[in-house]
Design a protein around this nucleic acid. Structure first.
Lengths: 343, 343
DNA sequence: TTGAAAGCGCTACCAA
DNA sequence: TTGGTAGCGCTTTCAA
């Protein structure tokens, strides 16, 4: 005999509520999900819920509905200010829509990124926003057969049928060069980050574009590469200053720019009087540095917002055509790049 | 007739695998979970899994096992560098242990914090690390009957049976004052953050402790309060400098300290020659500011690590006694507080 | 509008 | 060691 086990200590389930309210579990479920129900039934269920302290079990609900109410964001490293800005943008939008946010730090590991994509068919999230460092063929493959909607922040190969938010730093860098030239700068140095990445290449090309537009030639001794750190920026600036006399330095990152500022200070070069400095990403660091740093904003916050909204749209309508959104870089001018005062 | 529906397009389940391998679903489950099984069975199941492209459904698994493989971290605002440091510390530890990390930003809203605690009995996570702004009676109540293990980062009332990582900024501030006095400073100002919080009060008390230890009296005109922003710090410094001549400023936060640096620069006061400056939290900002900022480290990263480890221990053994860990603040000395050079 | 019942995909019990 | 099967807690037909 399948006796009605009273489950004395157990936490309440729909059954418990149904018994307390004197209705069926189906009715309880209907009330809980706001389906058409009699006023009286609603009242009784509500009371019973309060009385027994019932809370829905999300695993059981997910199993039935095939929805988790969760969304993941995957990026290389949340310590990076740009990714942090994205998280700050994404979180409130998802939360507002009733989703919980799950974080994946991939440590700049391509294999990890692929793994995140594959793991989607464990169905622990309803969707994913990913910010890949590079997009390999494997990425595209996995993206195409991902088990849930995915929004990519970054450059995607043409024809990849995935929602996408993109930005190209190239014109941003070119514009910054124009700004420096307009301000009377003649010898503009570039401190770039790693160049074997898509953004690294874009920045370099933007630099060349800018020089060309100003009718200038590239001078190899004005270009340095390094990793993204204050020390890296300081050292790169030293290398350049040892062999050349730039009157402006463009750095691939605010962190690098701060390093450059330190070197300039050590050498008693005044910013912006002797040397102008421009950073990139427009992070908090740019605003708090001294002098305040002109910076090329890559709109991380906006990109995060757009990606989150794109994902919500996709979740609401899985059949809509993939949408690609492009964001323009923006030059945020501060004191560090003021025009030279004619002597 | 309950015909064996072939589910042609459906994604593979244990059933699909069982059929492909010619074994029972029970055997599939056993292999998947590493329980004792025949070598041959293991092989066949593995092959079948690969062949049909099977992946476990996490909702179904959670429903049975009552475990989610997820842990949440709740804090006021991930934009705050201290919380960010905690996330960076917590994430790899949980990940290593096979847990996914869920993020809750409560926007410094007490009701939200309570809600997070209550929502635990939806069972969408196996545990929670929370960093409350204040701990009210409601908090304690909810903590005591939380549906999953919770680790609190912050001050908990004595007797609250919950794992806890704590730090008291008070002795840290007192030590910083001693450091300034040792460096020859006589008029030490305090720019505090909001004082109606536990940390705000602690900092003020630490300031008084420090003065007393040095045989000094508090002078009201040397103390200001403001919100945590660069502008707030700058303005507070102006107010103090308008009515007094401090030779040192202690700020409740690196952000505030940077604001103070800006004001000092405007007034042509040299740091550290004329005025020493000390910040708090020892964030990236302290290291990149000019001059590099002495800062009281509240060890956010370490606290995050400890909390994560405490939670893992609790998850492994729910019956162990609650553990309280205390972390000591640490003074990180940089150029901004160098001793006065005797004229 | 309601209740009975099927079953989401999985694990774990029990008997063989 | 294995397979049959009950059932985790919920939603959603289907008939009444």
């Amino acid at each position: 005999m399948p006796a009605q086990r009273p489950r004395p200590g157990g936490r309440p389930t729909v059954r418990t509520v149904a018994e307390a309210a004197g209705v069926s579990v189906a009715s309880v479920s209907r009330v809980l999900n706001g389906l058409t129900t009699n006023e009286e039934t609603i009242r009784r269920v509500r009371e019973a819920v309060a009385k027994v302290g019932y809370v829905q079990d999300s695993a059981a609900r997910s199993l039935k509905t095939r929805q988790t109410g969760q969304v993941a964001f995957a990026m290389a490293d949340i310590g990076n200010a740009a990714y942090l800005a994205m998280v700050r943008a994404i979180q409130p939008i998802l939360r507002e829509a009733g989703y919980r946010l799950l974080l994946h730090s991939t440590d700049a590991d391509i294999a990890d990124e692929i793994e995140v994509l594959r793991s989607l068919n464990q169905r622990y999230v309803d969707g994913l926003i990913i910010c890949p460092l590079r997009v390999t063929e494997r990425h595209v493959e996995e993206l195409e057969q991902a088990a849930t909607p995915v929004v990519v922040i970054g450059q995607l190969p043409a024809g990849c049928p995935v929602d996408n938010v993109r930005i190209d730093s190239r014109p941003g860098v070119a514009r910054a060069i124009a700004h420096l030239v307009d301000g009377g700068r003649r010898q503009i140095a570039l401190i770039n980050g790693p160049v074997d990445t898509v953004p690294g290449r874009s920045r370099y090309l933007g630099y060349l574009d800018g020089l060309r537009a100003a009718g200038k030639e590239e001078r190899r001794e004005l270009v340095a590469f390094t990793d993204f750190s204050v020390e890296g920026g300081a050292k790169a600036a030293q290398e350049i200053l040892d062999v050349a006399e730039p009157d402006a330095i463009l750095a691939a990152n605010d962190i690098l720019a701060v390093g450059a500022l330190q070197t300039l200070r050590q050498r008693n070069l005044k910013v912006p009087d002797d040397v102008a400095v421009v950073g990139m990403d427009d992070t908090e660091l740019a605003a708090t540095a001294w002098p305040p740093l002109t910076s090329i904003s890559l709109r991380a916050y906006e990109r995060g917002q757009l990606a989150a909204r794109l994902l919500l749209k996709r979740l609401a309508d899985p059949d809509r055509a993939p949408e690609w959104v492009t964001v323009e870089p923006q030059l945020v001018v501060r004191a560090s790049s003021a025009a030279v005062t004619t002597p």
